[in-house]
Amino acid sequence: MEELLAARGVEVSYETVRRRVLKFGPAAARPLRQLRDRPSPHWHLDEMVVRIAGKRMYLWRAVDDQGEVLESSSKVVVTRRRRES
């Protein structure tokens, strides 16, 4: 956003853009969420390997059969060890 405005001769700080996104972002996202297809009733637990502070961690989240992260799973789980099946 900062670069788009700069191309038009408007200079804004990163902090200004961040505050506007925090204020108006949820209102813009709400209608977009309503346009999305409803998630499938079939889902699975997705595992990803991520690096946090240089350490290997495992991130777990709920994903439907189309690969979409389920919104109700906004709480992800991060563990140091991989879960045994």
Score class of each variant (00 low, 15 high):
22 L>Y: 04
16 T>M: 03
10 V>A: 14
42 H>Q: 10
85 S>R: 08
48 M>P: 00
15 E>M: 13
60 W>Y: 15
75 K>V: 12
61 R>G: 13
74 S>L: 08
81 R>A: 12
37 D>L: 14
46 D>G: 09
27 A>W: 07
69 V>H: 05
31 P>I: 01
83 R>M: 11
73 S>A: 12
49 V>Y: 03
49 V>A: 08
81 R>P: 01
69 V>G: 08
78 V>A: 07
69 V>L: 14
44 H>Q: 05
22 L>M: 13
57 M>N: 13
44 H>V: 03
53 A>G: 10
35 L>Y: 06
39 P>A: 13
42 H>T: 06
41 P>G: 06
69 V>F: 12
53 A>F: 09
21 V>S: 03
11 E>V: 00
55 K>N: 05
82 R>Y: 02
74 S>N: 13
33 R>V: 12
7 A>R: 11
74 S>W: 12
68 E>A: 11
33 R>W: 09
51 R>F: 09
18 R>E: 14
1 M>S: 11
2 E>R: 15
26 P>Y: 09
48 M>Q: 14
16 T>N: 01
58 Y>D: 02
31 P>C: 08
43 W>S: 12
83 R>N: 14
63 V>S: 04
11 E>C: 01
26 P>L: 15
9 G>T: 03
71 E>S: 11
28 A>H: 06
34 Q>T: 13
55 K>I: 01
36 R>T: 13
80 R>I: 04
56 R>Y: 05
64 D>H: 00
31 P>T: 02
16 T>P: 00
15 E>R: 08
64 D>R: 00
61 R>L: 14
37 D>T: 04
6 A>K: 13
82 R>F: 02
16 T>I: 01
22 L>R: 06
68 E>W: 12
14 Y>W: 05
66 Q>D: 14
62 A>F: 06
62 A>T: 00
10 V>H: 12
29 A>N: 06
73 S>W: 01
62 A>L: 10
17 V>M: 07
12 V>C: 04
33 R>A: 15
46 D>K: 00
32 L>D: 04
3 E>R: 07
80 R>Q: 14
51 R>G: 04
76 V>C: 05
80 R>F: 04
64 D>S: 01
18 R>H: 10
12 V>N: 02
44 H>E: 11
73 S>Y: 02
39 P>T: 02
35 L>R: 14
14 Y>P: 02
48 M>S: 13
70 L>W: 01
59 L>Q: 07
81 R>L: 11
80 R>T: 11
25 G>L: 07
56 R>K: 15
14 Y>H: 14
42 H>N: 07
21 V>L: 13
